[in-house]
Simulated assay, not measured.
Amino acid sequence: MRNLKSIALALVALVTFTTTAQTKKINVSKSTINWTGKKVTGEHTGTINLKEGNLVFKKGLVKGGTFTVDMTSINTTDLKGEWKDKLDGHLKADDFFGVEKFKTATLVFKNISTKNKNNYTVTADLTIKGITKPVTFDLVVNGTTASANVKIDRTKYDIKYGSGSFFSDLGDKTINDEFELKVNLAW
């Protein structure tokens, strides 16, 4: 009888474990976000720090996620000295990300389609400068890591500086509307 009780408890624990959601807290010190912004005459690259985040799994599949990015950490990596300081300052200014007022950006998963066990298409609400718009991207999970390339149209978040979609006669000073984030997460 005692053996039967132990087996029953083990089965209940197994069923509970496989049907309940598990939240994996992202290790922000081991995770990276690299950005690339392009213009007519080239591109700039840099990093930005994840403040906090988590992925939610159920039965081994991604079922949710929330992330907060520290916008004050915008850092240019392809320049040095005065030019780096100028670009970092401009990206933090009101005509770009306005980080004095909007210190964070958030991403909240809303819809997740499973391509296969490790590959997903995610539609999420991205909030930048207090403006929330949907973005769609692919997410690849590999063990205790995940990666995604996310393309963002900055003009949807009222970041129009140097945009050929809003200003004419910019010539070689035109900046692409889209920028890309290469995200690598670890937990």
Rank of each mutant, 00 (worst) to 15 (best):
K5L: 01
N34S: 13
F137G: 00
S163W: 12
Q22A: 08
E82T: 15
N54I: 00
L185Y: 10
T174I: 11
E100P: 09
D172V: 10
T36F: 02
G64L: 03
K173Q: 10
A8F: 13
F109M: 02
L9G: 09
G130K: 07
L185M: 11
S113F: 03
L50T: 13
K182Q: 12
K63V: 14
E180G: 09
K160S: 10
T23Y: 13
V12S: 09
V150E: 01
T104M: 03
F102D: 03
D169C: 02
K182V: 15
N3C: 01
V69I: 15
F17H: 05
A8C: 11
K30A: 15
L185A: 08
G53W: 05
L4Q: 09
A105H: 12
F179M: 06
T66C: 02
T104V: 14
F97W: 08
L185C: 08
G143I: 12
T20P: 05
G164Q: 06
T132E: 07
V141C: 11
T41L: 11
K182W: 00
H90C: 03
T18M: 12
T155L: 03
G81D: 04
E82K: 13
M1V: 09
A105E: 12
G81M: 05
L55N: 12
V122P: 10
N75F: 06
T45L: 02
V135Y: 07
F102S: 03
S147R: 07
I48E: 07
T106K: 06
G130I: 11
A124W: 02
M1I: 09
K84T: 04
P134C: 04
F96V: 01
V40P: 12
N75D: 14
L139S: 06
S6I: 15
T127Y: 04
E43I: 01
K84L: 02
I152Q: 05
K103E: 07
K92E: 10
N184R: 02
F67C: 05
N116Q: 03
N75I: 00
T68Y: 03
D172A: 08
T18F: 14
L9N: 01
D158H: 13
G60W: 02
D172Q: 09
D94K: 11
I112E: 08
K182M: 03
F109D: 01
N49Q: 14
S147C: 05
T77V: 12
L14I: 15
T144Y: 04
K117E: 12
V62C: 11
I175T: 08
S165E: 07
D153F: 04
G171Q: 12
T41H: 07
D95A: 04
I33Y: 02
D153Y: 06
I33H: 02
V122D: 07
